[in-house]
């Protein structure tokens, strides 16, 4: 597998791979995202307890799951970059961070908008909302650390270390917040803690998770390309790429 993967550590190859993959990802992302959302909004049955407000789940749960997934992916990229000195991995990390931050924001926002009709307030210090908020802070920390360095090579390394520190902390934060929450306010919120989901609700949920993942992947691919070009502005292959684009 290494033999197969290794050429893509070279930025030019990675760029071309991205170029080839992008249309596939964009189409499949649009299709699955639209199917998931429309199915969830219009065709899935309403929850017997929460009525139609429950439909927020079709954006809230995917974004919550993928906000954590994106952070892990970012930390894995940082790890690969730090251990094997792969520059493309740092670029991937940097390209992923803002996407993760936006998706975390979406999870927080939809959580609040779901909480208002259900709990009566926009914000409660619910364990999952709180750890999601901390996750957002971790993302912003990595992004602002990267932005503070002039030398982007150094910046990538520094932000990578911070991303790994964050990922080591993430489970600790999650469990500590959960424990803190049960300590401070009884089990009042757990009343809709995962009742086994009916299949006609589960399928649209799974499809919207897949859809959001593909949307993020498509945006990530384009951002990675941008990052590669930005770092290698004066390399001959970028020059050729741009001249080729001009002729079209």
């Amino acid at each position: 597998m290494w033999k197969w993967l290794h050429p893509y550590a070279k930025t030019q190859n990675a760029y071309q791979l991205c170029e080839r993959l992008l249309p596939w990802f964009v189409t499949s992302a649009l299709i699955s995202f639209v199917i998931g959302i429309v199915w969830g909004l219009a065709f899935a049955p309403a929850d017997y307890q929460q009525g139609d407000s429950f439909r927020i789940i079709y954006i809230h749960v995917p974004s919550a799951i993928l906000s954590m997934g994106a952070y892990s992916a970012m930390a894995i990229a940082a790890f690969v970059g730090l251990v094997w000195q792969v520059r493309t991995a740092f670029m991937a990390m940097v390209a992923l961070a803002p996407i993760g931050a936006v998706v975390t924001f979406i999870a927080l926002f939809t959580g609040a908008a779901w909480g208002k009709p259900m709990w009566g307030t926009w914000w409660v210090w619910d364990a999952r909302l709180t750890s999601e908020l901390i996750l957002l802070f971790l993302y912003l920390g990595v992004i602002s650390l990267y932005a503070s360095f002039e030398d982007k090579h150094q910046a990538g390394k520094a932000a990578g270390v911070m991303a790994i520190v964050g990922v080591v902390n993430l489970p600790i934060i999650h469990f500590s917040v959960e424990w803190w929450n049960t300590l401070h306010q009884g089990a009042s919120i757990t009343k809709f803690d995962k009742p086994s989901v009916a299949p006609d609700m589960l399928w649209p949920l799974l499809i919207s998770i897949l859809g959001l993942a593909l949307v993020m992947a498509a945006i990530f691919i384009r951002r990675l390309q941008n990052e590669i070009v930005r770092r290698e502005l004066n390399r001959p292959w970028v020059q050729e790429l741009v001249s080729a684009a001009k002729e079209k």
Partner: peptide, 19 residues
């Protein structure tokens, strides 16, 4: 920046210590 990076990381400690 130091504070921005570190404060979220210190949250578990704060929780357990105050508890």
């Amino acid at each position: 920046l130091l504070a921005l990076l570190l404060l979220p990381v210190f949250i578990p400690l704060l929780i357990f210590a105050t508890a």
